[in-house]
Amino acid sequence: MRDALRHAAGPVGALALALIVSSFVMLAFHTNPIAAFGALLHGAFGSKQGSAETLVQTTALLFAGLGVAVAFRAGLFNIGAEGQLVAGGLSTAIAGAALHAPAIIEIPLCLLAGAIGGAIWGGIAGVLRARFGASEVITTIMLNYVAFLGSSYLVSGPLRGDLSAPETAPIAATAVMAPIIANTRLTAALPLAILLALYLWWWLGRTVAGYELRAVGKSERAARYAGVDPRVVIVRAMLMSGALAGLAGATEVLGLLHRFNAELSPGYGFTSIAVALLGATNPIGVIFSALFFGALQNGALAMQSLAGVPKDLISVVEGLVILFVAARKLPVGLMLARRPARIEGDS
């Protein structure tokens, strides 16, 4: 318990610092930060609808944030969650439109399709890193753009549905994840994401594969010594990371949009980096930080409409949180594991 409190102290401090700095930004432009954050809080949790919508945002961020966190644990920086999310969403939409099975079969199959789509996209970066030593930071950035442009081509051409917008055909009715609370958009994706977080926490700490993944993340040479092939672990970590981000896209498609649109994500993949870092790359921590960022994203709408503060301000908060968490010499810094600069002894 005391341990948990100590682990939470850093992130909470970083958050507080970020909120203070952004308050000064608002004051500089004659905005009352208390009113702004008040409106934000009200929007995020002030009503049943609002709270549900916060949880909807949390869901996507949790999936993608877990993905980024797993990669981090393996010493990899996956900036490609956004592209993997797109790949996952597109795969899901294709599966959802093509398959016609009872919901109990169709929905899991569609989720699987999304996970596989994301996993492939993440796996490419993993293979390039493991096989050729290509920095996953660069490849995932580049793969993001390939995903955006490729999916945009597909939905405006070969995969275009009969809607007026460049989108895929709607998924089958049996593929739709229905809300679990009436009059909200909250689906079973949230409990699924939380279960996955718990599983991942157990998997990382208690299984041989999780142990080996962490070993590679901490010391690649020691892992090799221990009979682990870091290349296998790197590919596996990127596959998992991509699959999780892909699930974020899949649940967006199945639960919210019911089709794929190239602009499906408002940058969940990028925010998920902040989510993973603020959660100290610990799956349990990621649950809480996803909730925080979900509230931030959702409350931003109310902040904009009630307090007249452009919601872009939350990106400022987000950026500041990442900065402060990354600082190793501030008391709020998380001393994140140093990632190895590049692969050693690759062959």
Partner: peptide, 11 residues
Amino acid sequence: SVTDYEPNLST
């Protein structure tokens, strides 16, 4: 983003 439409309308 496109997924903002629904929450915006609901809000």
